[in-house]
Structures are given as structure tokens and as C-alpha cells.
Design a binder for these strands. Sequence first.
RNA 1: GGAUCUAUAGUGUAGCGGUUUAUCACGUCUCCCUGUCACGGAGAAGACCACGGGUUCGAAUCCCGUUAGAUCCGCCA
Length: 580
Amino acid sequence: MLRTHNCGELRLENVGEEVILCGWVDTIRNLGSLVFVDLRDKYGLTQLNIDPKLFENLAIKNEYCIQVKGVVRKRQEINPHLPTGEIELAVSNITVFSKSKLPPFEIKDDTNALEDTRMEYRYLDLRRPIMQRYMKIRSDLSRYAREYLYQNDFQEIDTPTLIKSTPEGARDFLVPSRIYKGCFYALPQSPQLYKQLLMIAGTDRYFQLAHCYRDEDQRADRQPEFMQIDCEMSFVDRDDVLKIIEGLLKYVFKKTIDVDLPDFVRMDYSYAIDKYGCDKPDMRFEMLLNDVTDSLQNCGFKAYDGKTIIALKVDDYADKVSRKHQDADNLLAKKYRVFGVSHLKYENGQFVSSIVKNINQENLEKLAARLDVKDNDLLIICADSDATRAKSALGALRLAYGKEMGLIDKNVYKPLFLINWPMFEKTAEGNYECLSNPFTRPVDEDLPFLETDPSKVRSTSYDTVINGVELSSGALRIHDSDVQKKVFEIIGLSDEDIETRFGFLVKALQYGVPPEGGFGIGVERLAMELAKTDNVRDVVAFPKNLKGFEPLSSCPSKVPEADTDVLGLKIVEDEQNGQS
RNA sequence: GGAUCUAUAGUGUAGCGGUUUAUCACGUCUCCCUGUCACGGAGAAGACCACGGGUUCGAAUCCCGUUAGAUCCGCCA
């Protein structure tokens, strides 16, 4: 037996026992004729009291991996900050399992080593207690999600990860086939098509903790390789599915971080865009957007003619917003391709701004009345021919101001379902495209619009959003082949297109499809919420950086020519194609 | 594909045209220390200031380029 206890469990009642502990040397406090060492493992710290001669002989250094034997004894002075702070181990014997080089950064929670450095030595980074906590949360969430789904009669099935490439949605990671030269497998972006086949197969309730891959540019909250809690259910309507999502998330939050989520509210997609300027509203604070096009109709300012005009009112904050601040706001707004925003400060019953001289007094009064503007309120106005663009820009500013003004309480959770998404969107060329995938079922009462005006059709898609983070999305699927045909027609898919892209699914749809629906919950996003971090790399053991590079093992990497030859691949100078 | 920011001992930082022999903290090394727990005290070592050009009498500092990283827009059905 290598150890009798871990480093987090010894207490006063163990005093007098002879125990063996294993772990890493955390902190050394050498007082001369008395040496204290904190021994660290996953479970905590235990103070060792080591004879200086023994300590010197072994030349113990930080991060050595050791085993110690000794008797537990009460400390002369307790350390209230440590669970094991009332005892220490009087060490009689030390075995050094393994020495350690000097680590490139200190193994403690408040390290400020650059992420780059941390990633190169991820195994040391993960030794830090805070990272251990993140990994635990990730593990717990998987465990409790499974637990909940098993309790609700879901069956776990693994679907393939070498699949047919479907040129739809995100870019696929491709894997070249050795036997079929010139042919490729794709890594799945989601188990979407397979889970629909499983419903046709009569599985009834399926789930999987699925590995998914998307070859798109990275973000702070997005990795090329990620996991989904992927579910699909037969003979259900939307409410049945939403009930499972809500139940699952409530269960996971409670079990993992002991938080009782409030009941999930429902919000229309159009309301979210109008009032929050995005499709993942953060409801922890108000400060909603307002369409003030009416108030500024024919206001005399040519730049506003024919535009949609959106206003964000920031209460009692005008004096805090300097010229420099306004420039920064403009920079942020311009990312959303608007010309910019105007700041109107309300002082002594009047708007003060560089643009007020262009606007009729009458319109300004209308505007003030419409938004109930008071002294020291700030209006940020954005006008654009594209209403959604203006709303997005102000939506981003809303979040920035909410954060800056401290309106966001990190201990509050505001979950919602975003429903009634548009089924189609028009491309620049005037064609229709599915906003979601083409198997998404339209809302029943909108079915007639498939014939008359597809832009009015809403889909049964639902996103789950908590605190401005999209945690899951899903939808009911089309089970009526006529509806399916009509949808394909609207997005201009020829029979040939359909056949090559997903002929196998369309074929299956001819053999009795149950009304079904499902969802996928992003495991990393959920873990980020539970861990209260906004960096996805914190909850992934071995993450990739923004360029999809994994600094620890230096991947992706070049391979010997013989390996590409056997795959029938030719590597073109300075380009790496088809490797995965 | 585009925008912004960043790069200085092992780690994190200061410096932002000339008092620099480059600041400070942590870490490391040596010595002292019997109750520490952010131990304390004395001392020491450690940096081609990312790389390549340019401006200048003079560049860590200003400019251009390259590389690497971060954040965002596009993208992510």
C-alpha cells in the first residue's frame, strides 16, 4: 500500500495514528533546526514536520513527488485556513519517488503566467488547485447529466466519428481514406443525422456525450474539438423536450455547484433581437434597446432619413462618459458595420450632443418623452438602413455598459428558452437559406406560409441561454415527407443535391418517422458557466489555442512523405491539406 | 478574410528618446534561524529588452516589416 490517507483528510481524531501520505512538495519553510513542508495532492495540503538532517540529506525541492511516513500530531498553533490545519505529520521516513526540475511557473492558484507558458506545461498548470476544481466540475457535470438522463429512460448510444462529409454548415475536419484513394471521412460536427436515424429505428430516447469537431476560427469560448450532451426523443412536442432540458440543467447546477436555477422563461427570437440586440440575451440586467424611429421621423437630420433608429438609454451616467469613452464606444459599435453611434447627454432638461443642432427641437422633445429621459441620463443612438445591424451594435454596447456599471451579479442565474426562430433567411442574392438545418420542423400554424411567404415561417428551434451564454440548441424535426420536400424546394436543393448530401437520411424518412425532437448542450460552455470562467481553455484539459494549435504536443504536425503517399495525398509547398 | 492589443531575467512587471550598470515582486542559489503556514534575516546569481530593417549624434523606448500570443468582427446549419 503506497498510502493510507490523502493530503486532505487527516483531522484531530487521527492524532496518534501512523499514516503514509503521497504527494508533491508544495511549500518549504525551513526554520533551521525545524522544517515544515506542505505536501500537496488532489485532495488538499497536509503540513509535514521534518527533521532538518533528514531533509538536508534528501535535498528535497519544490514539486518533488514523495511518500512520507509518520505519526499524526496536534499542531502547537492551528491554521484556520486549512481543513487539515489542526494537525501535522511528524515525519519519520521519506521516499523520493521522483525529483523535479524547477517548474517554469509557481504551482499556485493566483499564477499570472501567460497562457502560452501554461499550455506548454499543461501538466504543471493542471496541478494548480483551481484547475483541479475546474476539471472536477467538468467531470461532475458529465456524471450528473448522465444520471439525470438515465433516470429519465434515455439510452446511451455511441455514433461513429468517421462519417460522411456533408457540405452544410461549418467546415468539416477531413480524414483521408487509405483504401478509397481520393475519398475522405469527416469528423462529425454533431451526431445530428445519426440521432434522427436512431429515432426512426425506434430507440425512443437516446443520448450521448458526443465528441464534435468544427474547422472554423476559434474564440475565447470556442474550440475546434468540443463535446455535446446530445439527446433526441420520439413522440414528443416542444414542451416535452424543453421540460427535459430544464430538468437536466436544474439537476446539474444543483448537484455540481449547489445552485437552484429559477424556472426558465421563454422569449421570442424577435423580442431578443429588438430588446437585447442579440440572440443570447443576458437578462441579469435591464437597459433594453428602444426603436425610436417614430420619434425621429423627419427630424431634419439627413443622416437619419430612411434609417431605423435605435436608442440605448443609460440611466444617470452621462457625467461618467468622457469623449475618450465615446470614441471607444464607437470603435466597438463599428465592429458591427454601422457608421457609428451618437451620444446624447441630458442636462438641465436639454440634450447636449454634437448632433442636436441637426435635429428639430420638436423631435428631441418627443424622444425625451418617449424614453422618459431625466437629467444625467445618456442616450446612445444608432441609425442604420439595416435594423439588425444597429441593434447588434447597441446590444454590444448594452453589455459593455452593464459590465462597466457593475449591473451584473455573478451569483445570479437567468435562464431562458429562445423560441420562434425564423425558419429561413434571405441571402444577398435573394435566395432562401435555412437558419438552422433543413430537417428542422416549422411551427405548425406557419405551414401555410411555406407556399405563400417563406420569410414568415417560424421554426420549432429552441436555444437555451443562461446569462448571455448559449448553452444548448435544438429543434423538432420534420416527420412529414411532403413538408420536407417543400423545405428542400424553398432552399433550392435539386434532387441530385439532396441525394449526394444526405440521400441516406431522406431514404430513411420514407419508412415511418415518429414526431421527434432533441437538443445538444455544449459541455464546455456549461462547464464555463458552472466554473464561472469566460475562458473555454480553463475547462478543457488539453486545449488548442486560437489557431487550433496544441502547444503541449505541437499539433498539428508534418508527417513523413511515406504516410501521405499511402493515402494518395500530395503535399503542396506551404500548404497542409487533408491532414487530421 | 479583417480589426485591435501585447511581446523586457524562470514567472509577472516598471521604464515610453539621453542620470539605465534596465526597476520592483515572486521564484532560484548561499549563509543564519525551534513553531512556521505569504515564515523571517543577510547576501548572490540570473535579461543579446521577440526577430529583421529604418529614423536619430544616441533606441528597450519612435517608425516599418516579420513571428508568436490574446481579444473581437466575419465564420460557427
